[in-house]
Amino acid sequence: MSRSNELYQQVILDHNKNPRNYRVIPEAELVCEGHNPLCGDHITIYVNVDATGAISDLSFQGNGCAISKASASMMTAYLKGKPIEEAKLIFSEFHDMVRGEFDPKSRENHLGKLILFEGVKEYSSRIKCASLAWHALMGALEKKQSATTEA
């Protein structure tokens, strides 16, 4: 399989074309706009948290490439219902994986099907595309209104 076919797998192309949770949550508790200043792409994340500290609703909107859009789509689908602390742990595993600092095969982890994005580590110019929505989510959980991939 060629290098980029490994990155642009059918699942990613499908999430790009039919993104899940691609909507505004009216009066969401937490809203954060994530920017990638390198390319000008931006994704806004909407979050509601329930009384137990779990993410009860999670959505996104914005403009981005297939990698950033699919990453946002799969992130929202995967994290909905999970406790905030677990979401933060998954963020750090995901972030380390796409930067090539964590091999998901080396130990047990919480990434599930998100390991599809492991191929991103081969593309230094695209790592920030994959992590844009995640930075925005972390920004939202820290009650920030904006976040950037340059943090």
Binding site: R3, K17, C39, D41, C65, A66, I67, R126, C129
Partner: peptide, 13 residues
């Protein structure tokens, strides 16, 4: 339907 960055990465192939 294709973002320019995806075009760039795929043309590199």
């Amino acid at each position: 339907g294709v973002h320019p960055h995806d075009i760039g990465t795929l043309l590199d192939e």
